[in-house]
Design a protein around this nucleic acid. Structure first.
Lengths: 247, 247
DNA sequence: AACACAGTTTCATAGAGTGAAACGAGGGAC
DNA sequence: GTCCCTCGTTTCACTCTATGAAACTGTGTT
């Protein structure tokens, strides 16, 4: 409400329209208008602008809107040299082969986390982990790692976020984070998703700054607490090696 | 100029700001203002809005702007099931192994073409082909394929585009396109980039609609006109198989 | 110290964006 | 066939938003 004056309303609305396309690829005009809470005619103009610049296209046949190729163009020009998601990929594959489970790489983005890289397990039952997925910073092994080793200001900002689940007891949570700092890794067992479990360790760059969380995840019947405890040493070792690869 | 009334100026400007980040990842405020021809304060507000929604972030250290992770999120939710870029990937790898050169997949986007998928040659000297790259629809083997087999309205729109090179003789070009329709493939020899050559063939879906161009490209000393002529049959055969994989 | 340059904020004004309403175009239902 | 519902498109008067000049702050350079 305070920095609304520093932003441009029409642009913010257009970006909100664009963000509709995460999770659902085909949208009708009225559908979007309903979703973002704007008038049809307003959304129509915003979409016309987005379409003009190639950010959305209209499916021929069904007249529905869909993301355009400008998005691909942007994202491909996003990755810079010594980008963690490409530099660390070989090490992630090595760890996947060593443990046989899906390996993911997460970074914090404000009060959420984003999976910036993943290599899938090759087992029949495996964790599928789409790159680019945005997840809450509250639950899950990687979330706790990203918070436990973050600066205090980051922690308090995350807890103050309206999206933070009110059901979590903050004291218990804080103690859990302390334990993670002590042990150097974090686990989660059916915490965010039923049937899934994960181990995560922090990756620090050479300057000692937390840059990402390395996570190994799989079905909870394979990744029992004992198994995860045994894997933790390997994961921390891999995370250490990865940190050395970063600027 | 005509449909400017149907679009939202501020949004268009914001998207133009966003598009600065294709080709150069780090931008200062004044730099962007200069690039897009807007006032500093205007760009400042647009960037604040883009930052608020996570489309750009500011590098800590250098205060420069850079693309945010929302872009990754969007692009990853872009690929739909039976998307050519994933369905055709195995066939592209097969062709790469068969011919030993870089294989690219292009689609037309208005009056340009975009590389939506690529598999790199494994030779020491190879064509590097970043996915997402946007190229002119005038020159290059794939361009000519995408135009030759397109509907007449598409062809005339491309020729009428202000970006179309005035140096090309339209009659010679039209004859060239006719030849491509007859032979079923297209070649280019140091046409767009010095030292590079390519062969391309059209991919039609089951309904007979042109959906993409399949291109094999490499250094011009390996891909001589004779070599490319010999490879053409394999490429057309691969393109035919790929078309059968599409809806 | 003086300067140059980048980013930020303020503010009066113009005109751009807004949303209600009307319009036109399918597409079922009956 | 008609009616009706819904979707996308267009118009238009009004308000409030976006704009850009200018002032301001901060940082590094000469």
């Amino acid at each position: 409400m305070e920095d609304d004056k520093r932003t441009v309303r029409a642009v913010g609305r257009a970006l909100d329209v664009l963000l509709c396309f995460t999770g659902k690829s085909d949208w009708g005009l009225s559908e979007i208008a309903n979703q973002v809470g704007l008038h049809k005619s307003t959304v129509h103009r915003l979409l016309a602008t987005l379409e003009d610049r190639g950010f959305v296209i209209r499916d021929e046949g069904t007249e529905k809107y869909r993301l355009g190729l400008r998005v691909l163009e942007l994202s491909s020009s996003q990755s810079r040299p010594n980008d963690p998601s490409v530099v660390l990929l070989p090490e992630m594959e090595r760890l996947r082969d060593q443990l046989g489970e899906t390996v993911s790489l997460y970074v914090r983005d404000r009060t959420e986390r984003v999976r910036i890289q993943a290599v899938q397990s090759e087992q029949a039952i495996r964790r599928v982990a789409p790159v680019g997925a945005r997840l809450p910073l509250s639950v899950g092994a990687s979330s706790k790692v990203l918070l436990a080793f973050a600066e205090p200001s980051v922690q308090s900002a995350a807890l103050a976020d309206p999206a933070w689940p009110q059901t979590l007891d903050k004291e218990t949570y804080a103690r859990q984070l302390d334990d993670i700092v002590d042990s150097g890794y974090s686990t989660s067992f059916e915490e965010r998703e039923p049937g899934a479990a994960a181990v995560a360790a922090p990756i620090f760059n050479r300057a000692g700054k937390l840059v990402a969380a390395l996570a190994v995840s799989g079905p909870s019947n394979r990744l029992t607490p004992e198994v995860m405890h045994n894997q933790a040493a390997f994961i921390m070792e891999a995370a250490r090696r990865m940190g050395a690869l970063l600027g």
